[in-house]
Design a protein around this nucleic acid. Sequence first.
DNA 1: ATGTATGAAATCGTATACGATTCATCATGG
DNA 2: CCATGATGAATCGTATACGATTTCATACAT
Lengths: 229, 229
Amino acid sequence: MSTTATPARTEARSKSEQAYEVLKDRITGGDLVAGYRLVLSSIAEELGFSVVPVREAIRRLEAEGLVKFERNVGATVAGVDATLYLHTMQTLSVIEGAATALAAPLITAVDIDNARRLNAELRRCLEEFEPQRFTRINNELHAILYGHCPNPHILDLVHRGWNRLNAMRASSFDLVPGRARKSVEEHDQLIALIESRADVHEIEMAARAHRTATLNAYMAQHQQPASAI
Amino acid sequence: MSTTATPARTEARSKSEQAYEVLKDRITGGDLVAGYRLVLSSIAEELGFSVVPVREAIRRLEAEGLVKFERNVGATVAGVDATLYLHTMQTLSVIEGAATALAAPLITAVDIDNARRLNAELRRCLEEFEPQRFTRINNELHAILYGHCPNPHILDLVHRGWNRLNAMRASSFDLVPGRARKSVEEHDQLIALIESRADVHEIEMAARAHRTATLNAYMAQHQQPASAI
DNA sequence: ATGTATGAAATCGTATACGATTCATCATGG
DNA sequence: CCATGATGAATCGTATACGATTTCATACAT
């Protein structure tokens, strides 16, 4: 109710947050190409806000690395070169590995079930070639695996990492040929590992390797050396 | 030149940044106790700025977790309970471990020398009981060890972690009795490991364990179970 | 023709002003 | 005596206005 109606009523979310959401969606949605220049006044006018909340929104996006901000010059959508992609993936491999390991002992049978179901969905997406859907389901699957991580900081970092990654995927870092199928197999192994209450360290390394493998596949395709960790 | 003179000349740093620095220093310096209420108008008046840059500074501090911000209510210096300390240490153990491992292959003989020198300093601080100085030198030592990490994201996260940690130390999470001495010994081992170009994974685990050990010492003293990773 | 200086336009940075929200206080009725 | 509602102060949220800085185009000198 009253999602956009009754302007008199407070919108619950401040305009800063609204602006933040809108811009974030546009960037992660791929509507704004990398390097696109974000002009405060233009955005403010378009949204019907003043520049102040827009400014704050942009600073938040800067803190998350989605836009690059230069003093007295302006903000541009963060360009994603191969290096940035590498760094983001590498960071996420570490963080998500830790998160998954910390979450593993707290996972429930229901979670395992759901994870398996989603992985089956992924297989279907493969066969019917639905990359968009694949990405979405993939997100959900991993969210289940690391979701119980009891450390909110780490959880937050994982979310930020995924955000950035999604923003990049949109700008065409999408797929490496055979990777998706292999990825699904690794999911099976990872799930089995978690279900069997394996050593947390082993789980951490498996989760990390899962992401590193995607990274390596990408790097291999673009013929660059990948520093191992 | 003209660091504070010539008001016509631009101060190089914007007022937002200045406000950010001042507040951050006060919090990490322990001048502002946890729970202290940060009122925009008061701070603005004190610094001679308007509220707008102060507001932005506080939002930045919020993003780093140093202050808690509640809409239409205000900001307070983030309270540090044992749980928060645990989570921060745990996060940092993961991140700093990875950073140190990634930096290890790029370290130079000079770095190793400096690290050893600083560790000797730490020993001296121990004997003459200078906890303040110990903390500072300890920061420097670790900064050398992870400094060459080629992944700027990870490096950034390490810095944020140290910041938060310093802020907490100030509010008396300082010392666990025998821990400092053991810590110095672990530094020796870690440095030796890095010097010998050991396996990066081994280095990562050593660096992580080094921090986890401090955490465990703290938890043991405060009789709480520490979930292992 | 090219490099440099000058000016104007675009954009950000901050101050001030006012509206909106929250919270505490106090009066009033049960 | 306690619960409840109204009133006011304190504070945040945002709009508007203006100054500061950067950038780009243009004209001039070499």
